[in-house]
Design a binder for these strands. Structure first.
Lengths: 220, 220
DNA sequence: AAAATATTTTAGATTTGCCTAAAATATTTT
DNA sequence: AAAATATTTTAGGCAAATCTAAAATATTTT
């Protein structure tokens, strides 16, 4: 069963899905996410509306239809399964997998993805801790406790990162933080919302607001 | 290193390469292979000439330059490695792998392909028995296929033995293997490179590395 | 070596996805 | 509630890859 959608269409649908989840969906944000211009996004929105993937009318808010959301979940599934494969089987660093999976996610065979899923043993989360939708399109919610919200002296593990930005992943690598890393908040500074955090069993280091709000943790 | 070529350009280069090998290269044949029209092929030939991938001038014969051939071998390498992956790891039937690999071959990361190659243990032939170019672009002639290199579930006939050692022939007799015997690899064990092989129509038996590397086969 | 036939190229459109600039509409500020 | 500002859409173009129809060139037949 060949996918009926172009790569550009799939990229828009996926971006709309993510922005919708974060609650920041607009023509401007959309074009920014896709590195195009707002006018280009409008062109595509019309096409997606024609294909009944979104509801849209001029100057109004728009959103995915049920059909559009199903497609989005399918694309997210492909993307995250390939990320898992790249990380787990080919031993790519977790800051490299996103860019490659962006390309692989558009390979259109359903059967391929289902076989890949089975081969990988039906993983539930990708290398960034994001949940992988199953073949039926069901996806668990991601846990929501951020490092920034963690109580003082409560040991926890990193279970996800909130963004795939290369710069963030680079920083994490620098601090030797990855999925499963144990962290513990030692001190909090209201001035700039930075905090002192103990990583693994090393001496505590200073982490900024942007970073601590991007790390999802789970209490041990 | 991002690929500098579009999917259409890569498809043309690959098709030119194959037609050139078969000795039937012409604008008409090319467009036929790509399911386009001759006029479209001419348009693309001009572009490929500008990019110095082929030599071409109006109404003359054309062919790949060294640069073009290097690119073609690289694309063939990607295609056949993915075919091998699909067949060996995901257990696709060998008649399904080609179409999917047509899409996967355009994913542009060099590093991905080299890691895939290593993960697959540097296979020398794809599931159809076609040779896979190595990272340097060297490709063996299609021939000399050993039982050890035979794809899973591909029926073949023994056509030669690589040695005349009495011990070897004795072993062959024991297993009831001779020239013309039909064999089919059912499972491969990376641990000691042994494999389970179905001989004629009997139940599969276990054969060691030394033996499977001494038997030359030909796909049926 | 002409004539007939076949192949290839040119010329001019079409579609997709993108752009810039200007117009239309929403939102925010005063 | 106007005015100012910001966002979104329309209008008109461009490049890539395709097409059809016609012209140019090669090849084959007589």
């Amino acid at each position: 069963m060949q996918s009926k959608y172009t790569i550009a269409e799939e990229n828009y649908i996926k971006a709309i899905f993510h922005l919708q989840e974060e609650g920041g969906l607009s023509t401007g944000k959309l074009s920014e996410a896709l590195k195009t211009k707002p006018a280009s996004a409008t062109d595509m929105l019309k096409k997606l509306k024609d294909k009944k993937l979104i509801s849209w009318s001029p100057y109004k808010k728009f959103k995915l239809t049920v059909k559009g959301k199903t497609l989005a979940l399918n694309i997210v599934r492909r993307h995250r399964l390939w990320e898992y494969f790249l990380s787990e089987k080919l031993h790519f660093d977790w800051d490299e997998v996103h860019a490659i999976a962006e390309e692989m996610e558009h390979v259109s065979s359903e059967k391929l993805i289902d076989k890949l899923d089975a081969y990988l043993n039906f993983p539930r989360v990708d290398p960034h801790g994001d949940p992988i939708p199953d073949a039926m399109g069901n996806m668990q919610q991601r846990a929501q406790l951020r490092l920034a919200d963690l109580p003082i002296n409560a040991p926890a593990n990193i279970i996800a990162v909130a963004s795939q930005e290369l710069q963030l992943l680079e920083l994490l690598k620098h601090f030797d933080i990855s999925l499963g890393t144990r962290v513990e908040v030692k001190k909090r500074f209201d001035f700039d919302e930075s905090m002192e955090v103990k990583i693994k069993n090393k001496t505590a280091i200073q982490l900024g607001e942007a970073l601590t709000k991007s790390l999802i943790v789970k209490l041990i």
